[in-house]
Design a protein around this nucleic acid. Structure first.
Length: 562
RNA sequence: UGUCCCAUGGUGUAAUUGGCAACACGUCUGUUUUUGGUACAGAAGAGUUCAGGUUCGAGACCUGAUGGGACAACCA
């Protein structure tokens, strides 16, 4: 059945390429993929798209997928990021078995390849300064000029490259460049830098090296070393492909399997910023609590916010793979979570902004134990007991002194049902000097008890509630979008930080939930009736449970009256 | 005044490889419901950027234009 699904699904353009390669018995019909993050930040939803693509392909074709850390720039990378990446990929539900690789594992191989290129007369040591390099490189519309060091002898180049490695030169004073074509219309072919001198402590190789390969000289070769067949990356690397192929041309033997780079469009989400560099700014400048702040589009942020791995995988499946630049509506991501959580999240009752509802004709000391269904979507989730008594909290905005006709909730003389309990009729309300409502009064009809009603009363409104005597006090954090512009990064006159939504976090610390929630654990998901999906925050303690609102439930009345 | 890539409802992705455009989200309407959730039913919304060409027939192929994107880090 699973297979049928795949059969019927139309293939994206990458799968079509793969199918064709398979038909032609390219690489002997072998397939091998990889996901190559740089450990310089936390993974975000955009990476999730790439992860689901490559690992998904691995699952589909029952073949290997490597996790490779592209760690060639030690000054930005750290072990913290490595660990977070592993955790997040695993959490998403993917497995790289023992194929955890690092580009830094290949530093020696890469060095030898550099030597080989020099010997072939395809690389040279250059001593130009960054400014001089920029100048002689030309522009996209004007050709560049050859470096004065371009025609050094092989011997001299070999000697200098060795000395670079041995630490005989200052940082930035020399570099190894490929000898290609300074007049190429592709800027990346204008004698690109292969190695630079940089004395920085590497999180894996420590101080073993003072020269580090550049991306272009490391990535394709790493793919080649790992015998990757299809190297998937985002569109901005399209112009790098000729260089990717050129380097492999230099090292691959005739007839040897070689990787093929295929580019796809990166994910853009409305109201969301997706640049690691900018996310780092938000973290460092304290606009959010950290990489896993629930407002962040990081995997860890989404997880803390209550998103499930399945929902993210489904989302990735839904948005598809293509080469067109896109901006996906966050509503689609939210739909994915709601869809998943609707099936698995237990329904519970809680009141975020409470006001007392006093049932005047209910006995003072009586407590009734009502049985409520945990999830109408899934009977196997059973039911639970919720205590009911004379005084309950209801949502402050579930009562209006002068309600309009379309308002189905409580107002003077109006009737509603208290979820799982009785139909009540509002008989009055109390106010303090400031005009604030302090309590709402009502009378209940004993014959309307849920499940065993002897009288049928039709009401339009059903309110959630928590018994005052039995409720547990908790803290609730509601998150709104971090940016109040659909494209915070798309303005020339303003920076993305000008669009930060100052009300993106709202804390309610006077909230009450039903007693069944006494022993919740971080990452537990719930649907609070009528309010939305909530997730227990990792910082919760026994005495202070914190709920993050994952995503609100649709509420037509409030929507129309905004 | 360069090279490369892209162009399908509001958004994203399809279209069995040339047979008059489908699916999902969103929007709207209705039904059911002890969640204004869910489920179900239905509606509106593109004639495929434009102009030529090939063809009995083009969203698909060709040419040109237009629009958008990428490329000038000792970043990846």
């Amino acid at each position: 059945m699973e297979n049928e699904k795949i059969e019927n699904k139309s293939l994206n353009f990458i799968e079509q390429i793969i199918e064709k390669d398979l038909e032609n018995n390219k690489n002997g019909g072998r397939l091998h993929f990889r996901f190559p993050p740089e450990p310089n930040g936390y993974l975000h939803i955009g990476h999730a798209k790439a992860i689901c693509l490559s690992f998904g392909l691995g699952l589909h074709y029952k073949t290997k997928v490597n996790l490779r850390f592209d760690d060639t720039n030690p000054s930005k990378e750290s072990i913290e990021y490595v660990d977070s990446i592993k955790k997040d990929v695993k959490w998403l539900g993917f497995d790289w078995d023992d194929r955890e690789y690092y580009t830094s594992n290949y530093f020696e191989d890469l060095y030898q390849m550099g030597v080989k290129l020099i010997e072939k007369g395809k690389a040279y040591v250059c001593e130009l300064s960054p400014e001089e390099i920029a100048k002689q490189k030309g522009t996209p519309t004007e050709p560049g000029q050859n470096s004065p060091y371009r025609d050094r002898s092989v011997e001299k180049n070999l000697e200098l490259f060795k000395k670079m490695r041995d630490g005989e030169f200052e940082d930035g004073t020399k570099m190894l460049r490929a000898k290609i074509d300074m007049a190429s219309s592709n800027m990346h072919m204008r004698d690109p830098i292969m190695y630079r001198i940089r004395r920085a402590h590497h999180h894996r190789t420590g101080d073993d090296w003072c020269i580090y390969p550049m991306y272009d000289f490391a990535h394709g070769q790493s793919d080649f070393i790992e015998k990757i067949t299809h190297s998937l990356c985002t569109l901005e690397f399209e112009v790098h492909r000729p260089l990717y192929d050129w380097f492999i041309d230099q090292i691959a033997e005739e007839g040897e399997d070689r990787p093929r780079q295929i580019e796809f469009a990166r994910l853009n989400l409305s109201y969301t910023i997706m640049s690691k560099r900018k996310l780092l700014e938000l973290v460092e400048e304290g606009f959010v609590e950290g990489w896993d702040d629930p407002r962040m589009p990081t995997i860890s942020g989404l997880r803390r916010r209550g998103f499930t791995a399945a929902s993210i995988r489904n989302f990735a499946e839904t948005i598809g793979i293509a080469k067109r630049n896109n901006v996906i509506d966050v509503a689609l991501l939210e739909h994915s979570v709601k869809d998943d959580l609707n099936k698995i999240a237990p329904r519970v009752m809680g009141v975020i902004d409470p006001v007392k509802l006093i049932i005047d004709n209910y006995p003072q000391d009586k407590t009734e134990e009502l049985e409520l269904i945990n999830n109408p979507e899934d009977e196997s989730m059973g039911s639970r007991i919720v205590p009911f008594s004379k005084e309950v909290y209801i949502e402050r905005n579930d009562f209006m002194e002068e309600p309009p006709k379309k308002f189905f909730r409580l107002g003077p003389d109006r009737m509603v049902r208290l979820k799982g309990a009785y139909v009540v009729k509002c008989t009055g309300y109390d106010k303090d000097e400031t005009g604030k409502i302090t309590a709402v009064h009502c009378e209940y009809d004993p014959e309307t008890k849920s499940g065993s009603a002897t009288k049928q009363v039709k009401v339009k409104g059903i309110l959630h509630w928590v018994s005052v005597k039995h409720g547990i006090k908790v803290e609730v954090r509601q998150y709104d979008r971090l940016f109040n512009d659909p494209d915070p990064d798309g303005h020339k006159d303003k920076g993305f930080k000008d669009f930060i939504n100052p009300n993106s976090l709202e804390i309610f610390n006077e909230c009450y939930v039903e007693p069944s929630l006494k022993d919740v654990k971080p990452e537990d998901n719930f649907q609070f009736q009528r309010l939305g999906y909530f997730c227990v925050d990792k910082n919760s303690t026994k005495n202070n449970i914190i709920f993050n609102r994952t995503v609100p439930l649709r509420d037509n009345w409030s929507k129309k009256n905004k």
